[in-house]
């Protein structure tokens, strides 16, 4: 949570090493998780397969809650991946925080607005793409003029705020959680062991609450993503 970030310039693009490392780790954890749980897939599910199927049912349920009809099946994989990625990304900062010198290298990638806004941008882009693919460009652009022409700026603004709120909600929650964790751990000092007595339970409690927040935020993000997609798919409703 320190101010300076380790950056690398490559092909004229600037990369934040901390973010990229955290994302890589998150991706690896998610991949390892689904890889290990999907080894022995049988007709009669047992063990890991049950967990995985429960997760699939869960995310499919989120998608089907807002996207009606056959379209829901097209977004199952997206919702599943998004949920797992955000969930792991939210939790990873709670127990891993690697700081070398003044640079933090591993933290929650979702505690950075660049990451969350990218995710929300992807979601909104997917929603608009799905809307055009399903209803055609004409109907898509007509949607901006509904219910009448004066609503054009309002609709444009709505899309922009959707994008912003989707990303910033996740960022705010996770960032605040990590910030508070850092502050609580800052209460301790090595020459005053009594400080551990009161800061440890507080830290524990806040970590538990952060696990809860992280789960809820992953759920909320996926839910809102499917809501935005469904709005683009059927703009009348």
């Amino acid at each position: 949570m320190s101010d300076p970030v380790p950056t690398v310039k490559f092909l004229g693009l600037t990369f934040d090493v901390a973010n990229d490392l955290s994302i890589l780790i998150t991706c690896l954890i998610v991949l390892l998780f689904v890889f290990l749980l999907s080894r022995h897939i049988t007709m009669k599910p047992k063990g890991g397969q049950n967990v995985l199927e429960w997760l699939v049912e869960f995310t499919n349920g989120i998608v089907k809650g807002s996207i009606k009809g056959n379209d829901a099946s097209h977004f199952g994989l997206f919702a599943f991946s998004l949920f797992l990625f955000i969930f792991v990304a939210n939790q990873i900062g709670l127990f891993i925080h690697i700081q070398v010198g003044e640079y933090t290298y591993v933290k929650s990638p979702t505690a950075d607005p660049v990451v969350t806004l990218t995710l929300s941008l992807m979601t909104i882009a997917l929603a608009h793409y799905a809307g055009i693919a399903k209803n055609g460009a004409k109907a898509y652009f007509k949607g901006y003029l509904a219910p009448f022409k004066l609503f054009l700026p309002l609709n444009l603004f709505e899309q922009f705020t959707n994008f912003l709120t989707l990303g910033l909600r996740l960022f705010g929650n996770i960032f605040a959680g990590e910030m508070l964790l850092t502050l609580i751990s800052g209460l301790t000092s090595s020459d005053n062991w009594v400080s551990y007595l009161y800061s440890l339970p507080v830290e524990l409690a806040w970590q538990g609450f952060s696990v809860f927040i992280g789960s809820v935020q992953a759920f909320v993000f996926v839910t809102l993503a499917s809501v935005y997609i469904s709005r683009q798919l059927s703009p009348e409703e």
Binding site: F10, D16, N19, D20, I23, L52, V114
Partner: peptide
């Protein structure tokens, strides 16, 4: 400045999605 990051996130997420589809999603569904 962080366009690289955004690209990295987007690409890694898409790769992750493809790998999940290959490893778990398709067989499970």
């Amino acid at each position: 400045l962080y366009l690289g990051d955004m690209l990295f996130i987007a690409i890694s997420f898409i790769i992750l999605m493809a790998l999940i589809a290959w490893v778990a999603w398709n067989p499970i569904t």
